[in-house]
Amino acid sequence: MTITEAPIPFVVDVPQSELDDLARRVRDARLPEPLGADDWSTGVPISVLRSMATSWVDDFSWREVEKQLASFPQYVVEIDGQRIHYLHVRSSRADSTPVLLCHGWPGSYLEFLDLIPLLTEPDDVDLQAFDVIVPSVPGFAFSTPLSGDGWSIDRVAQAFVELMSCLGYGSYVVQGGDYGAGVAPAMGRLDPEHCDAIHVNGSIGAPFQEPDEEEQKRCTETELDRYRRVGEFMKSEFGYISIQSTRPQLIGAALTDSPIGQLSWMLDKFRAWTYPFDEEPDGALGRSRILAHVTLYWLTRSAGSAAHTVYAADGGAWGDPQAKPSQPVGAIMFAHDIGIRHLAEQEFDIVHWTEVPDHGGHFAAMEEPERLAADLRLFLSALPSGR
């Protein structure tokens, strides 16, 4: 891979005409009549969409998001012909450790805004500090438009390896959840000389087959419940994967022209994957944060390209099984997560595993940033000094 030009500073400054157009479309949106009881069993309730749309126009401010983003240094660079956008926040501490944070879908680099200061400038001087690099995955946010096909997990990981080299880091660690939990070990496999450790949340060791009798005896009640929830997911929630992995341009065309469509497509997962189960997502994430993510997808026209990278580029899955990366791997499983340690150990050198049975969900950096930061530090502190 080649970097064709040096990184250049980037500032998020959306033209007011774009925001005015979005507000007009939301105000003028045609909502369907509710189906049945208008609950979550058939999708996002129309009453919820109507309430969220009102908040989007009357209460939410993208300009406030831009002000927050202005406090984080952002850049763009071209790698392998693809524009890569990233945050790069250096710690004031001389002993800081570089960490690359990788997001998933339907997230973005906005996931990490609360986590970054906890890592770069910890209140306790005895806590490890970090330089934080947060790239937008190709096809997401300002890493758009996609330069072409073929953005598999390995190609994305290689681009991020090149980014870390471009920034001058001789060693680093990587952390990711969801799609990022696939990119993180791929970076380890591709860059064993420089990537020292891998930390993930959520999905490694996920069970995608029914447990046989022997496996049932081996599993804890929590692990059996994860088998059950994955089974239910495959029966009742898998539709979005089928669409995004086979028709990403179709979903892109639909959502890029309908802000309510974009809102409902993402809100469905923000509700399904946060904790506590079966509650409105506002409590776990906050309405403004949800609307910030939806607005980012809308403004960057990235519904189709994000789906293409995450779900279609590897043929509808996240690639075939790979060799174990050489690095030690740490994992944290929050209440909504689905990983099982003995399954994860078949693919990774698991040296650290934390269970959080009563807090947090899929969007760990937004739901539980303090716990996530603490677990990353705990994992790294137990590694040999050579790491």
Rank of each mutant, 00 (worst) to 15 (best):
A6H: 10
V11M: 10
D13N: 07
L19C: 09
L19T: 00
D39I: 04
S41V: 02
G43M: 12
G43A: 00
P45V: 07
R50G: 00
M52D: 09
W56Q: 09
D59N: 01
W62A: 01
K67Y: 11
D80G: 02
Q82W: 06
I84Q: 10
R90Q: 10
V99L: 15
V99G: 05
L100W: 12
H103M: 15
G104V: 11
S108W: 11
L110R: 04
L110K: 06
E111Q: 05
L113P: 08
L118R: 01
V132R: 12
T144Q: 14
F160C: 03
D178N: 06
Y179C: 07
A186K: 04
A186N: 11
D191L: 01
D196F: 14
G205C: 00
E213A: 10
K217H: 10
F233K: 02
E237A: 03
S242V: 13
P248F: 15
G252K: 10
T256L: 04
D257V: 11
P259E: 07
F270R: 07
I290G: 00
L291F: 05
A292D: 08
G304Y: 14
V310C: 10
Y311W: 14
G316S: 07
Q322F: 11
Q322W: 15
P328K: 01
V329L: 14
M333L: 15
M333P: 03
M333I: 14
F334K: 05
H336Y: 14
Q346S: 05
E355H: 07
G360F: 06
A365T: 12
M366R: 13
A373S: 11
